[in-house]
Design a protein around this nucleic acid. Structure first.
Lengths: 192, 192
DNA sequence: ACATTTTCTTGTCATAGATCAATGCCCGTA
DNA sequence: TACGGGCATTGATCTATGACAAGAAAATGT
């Protein structure tokens, strides 16, 4: 059950058996059914969840009720609203399971304890956030500078497994285009 | 000369006088004239720079030669291409001074040393990156979900001092709209 | 297997914003 | 004081994408 997450965490540092055991002991295992909203806008995010199995997205809802998907997360990813989690401030996003999931969860307190007891993990988490940031920077750039078609093709290249797992209108909301237009883009691509 | 950066760094942790002294001793002071390109696409970013004075932007150039400004940075901010800096991989962005600047610089090696010697700073830098990430998440959301007008008004609210310091076409490239259209948006706002 | 809901497609029309071109402005340099 | 080069503005088109509507297809539960 912890194999996957342990491999993940030790990718960029090495931990002793005791450290790993401690780490695993504080993770809370939670199976969650699909279509469950784990975090509502306005809530304070009290989890940082490693996905052992399943698929999750987090998204915003704008003033007109339109959803903007910030991220899809699948096996071996973490999901959270870091800002809300860190500062205990109300979140402005939603987090929702798209499939039945198995999660390994850190609460703010256990994470603090963990960092205090295994300081090496501070670095691991920093690197994780950095990677996240780099990915998001690139995405903003692409969002601003390319057409719907290119964004979709780029998405397929980077996340080839996602389209088989989630409904297309979610992908549209990730790309920042309407579902109808995504459909048109797809038929055009298919025709060629 | 180090007052500002020391206040900045001790905002979320407290360091002993020796730790601070060590930190300051490894910072490299560099005055840089305006319009200097500090990092070219393809280069490996070998600095993480704290801005003591001045204004900097980093930006991408797309396949059609259009610039997309990722970020303006002024006093009390850090600039770098973290991904390139961390992994020693070629950067895909440019970093350019917009005014004469005074920088305090970390190289990858000195940063490693610093982290090893003052582990508390690991946390400080993680929090910095997290904050960055949260800001960028919000920006992506706004970029996707709002009109040029709203984005501009939002920009004015969040960064009220920037417009006085940088040319308008830079702001347009930050907002992801053409300079001409920004001009039109502005006149419309002014008329009301 | 059927009914109901959700998702996807296709068409028409509307619009925010891009592109291009022309003009004037400001500012640094000689 | 004049001149040249970037900037900003304005107006006239053009285009990618959105909005709406209706139907087809696929998924879901009973």
């Amino acid at each position: 059950m912890f194999d996957q997450i342990n491999r993940h965490v030790t990718k960029c540092t090495n931990l002793s058996t005791e450290e790993l055991a401690y780490f695993n002991s504080i993770l809370q295992y939670r199976p969650i059914p699909k279509k469950t909203i784990l975090l509502h806008e306005g809530d304070i995010c009290n989890f940082e969840a490693y996905i052992n199995k399943g698929c999750i997205r987090n998204y915003y809802i704008d003033e007109n009720g339109f959803e903007v998907t910030l991220q899809f997360a699948i096996e071996d990813w973490w999901v959270s609203d870091i800002a809300s989690f860190q500062d205990h401030t109300p979140s402005s996003m939603f987090i929702e399971t798209l499939e039945d999931c198995e999660l390994l969860i850190l609460s703010p307190q256990t994470k603090e304890d963990l960092m205090a007891r295994v300081p090496k993990l501070e670095r691991v988490f920093r690197l994780m956030v950095q990677r996240n940031l780099a990915v998001l920077q690139r995405r903003l750039f692409k969002t601003i500078s390319t057409s719907a078609r290119e964004k979709y093709l780029d998405f397929l290249k980077r996340y080839p497994t996602i389209p088989q797992r989630v409904a297309q209108h979610y992908i549209a909301s990730y790309l920042g285009i309407s579902p109808e237009f995504l459909s048109k883009v797809r038929t055009k691509i298919a025709r060629k």
